[in-house]
Design a protein around this nucleic acid. Structure first.
Lengths: 183, 183
DNA sequence: CGAAGAAGTGATTAATCAATAACAATTATT
DNA sequence: AATAATTGTTATTGATTAATCACTTCTTCG
């Protein structure tokens, strides 16, 4: 049906299935929303970045809100995968988690900025996505810490989250000096 | 000129000088911006709350952006006054500062929400107001800590800021469980 | 081939709102 | 009282933009 591949054995990345387009749109959406914010970003800008017409976005996403939520969920998924991939002995688990987060802010800054954006958007669906995203991140870290036998996981998670937030905010506000000192 | 007072000796609070109106508008603006966010909040909503016509706002503020910046500065000023007023022995200075901040989130939640809102607004003037506001807050705390002879003021300030941010965000996202554990 | 379905576009519109312009009422000053 | 200054309003508009509609083009396969 929609699982297409050319006979040559190579993927034709330029081929456009709805699934591919969805991904392309999401990637562009992350960048555009991060740069301009939810309300200032236009669907036309996102479409232009992908190289499609503006109305076509609405064939693949019900509306702007749903597009933003999907982009946000994408960011949270990567973040959770990142934390899940952390492997370190107990005594370095905390510092490695922090390091791993800071690396994510370098490899995918737009996804981090998107999350900072979302903190202030008063929209039911977006608020809910933020709540479950934040909860999932905290849970992921907590369960890792607990499994490693760390004493007070909730306290450590809280510290990580607080410093991570300050780091992200420092980045969003372009205030490097605001970044957390030590840990 | 504009320093008016009735002969009775009582202030006529219902009298409306431009200065009074400015204050009323700012107060309404804080509430409306905090509730709906910068872009969804309308100048008509703010005007209605004050009981004036929508265009009159533009007699006292150049535009919406300037109104938001003024509201934001108001929030930062109160926050700095709050920290300045903290008085406690060295060993309790840190916990008292935190307590004092959390109390502010209860007495003036809208001003805190306004600051969270502002984190994500990509607008030059608002970004600048956020930068100098955050800097002023950090400096205020740092100088107090330094004066009290606290060992590594920058580190402690960083911790306070990080936990304060997490607290505010937990509030904005309506996620009480996200609030910092211990300090 | 030719029909069906998938992928995509141009034109348009219905709302929304910040901001201006032009005017009116109120209050102070000489 | 007349004038000036301040405080305020009504009406309007120009710009923006998410979303819909009505089509078209391309691809696949019986």
């Amino acid at each position: 049906m929609s699982n297409k591949q050319t006979g040559s054995g190579r993927f034709r990345t330029e081929e456009s299935t709805a699934v591919n387009r969805r991904e392309q749109i999401l990637e562009a959406a992350v960048a555009v929303f991060a740069e301009h914010g939810y309300y200032k970003a236009t669907t036309a800008q996102i479409a232009e970045k992908v190289g499609i017409s503006q109305p076509y976005i609405f064939k693949l996403f019900k509306n702007k809100e749903e597009l933003f939520v999907a982009a946000l969920e994408r960011a949270f998924e990567r973040m959770i995968r990142t934390f899940r991939a952390v492997a370190a002995p107990v005594e370095q688990l905390l510092s490695e988690t922090t390091r791993s987060y800071e690396q994510l802010t370098e490899t995918h800054p737009s996804e981090i900025l998107l999350q900072v954006q979302a903190l202030g958007i008063r929209d039911e669906a977006i608020l809910q996505a933020m709540q479950s995203g934040m909860l999932a991140v905290a849970d992921e870290i907590r369960s890792k810490f607990a499994a490693a036998g760390i004493e007070h996981p909730e306290v450590e998670v809280s510290t990580i989250m607080a410093n991570g937030m300050l780091f992200s905010i420092a980045m969003a506000l372009n205030m490097p000096d605001l970044k957390p000192r030590q840990a």
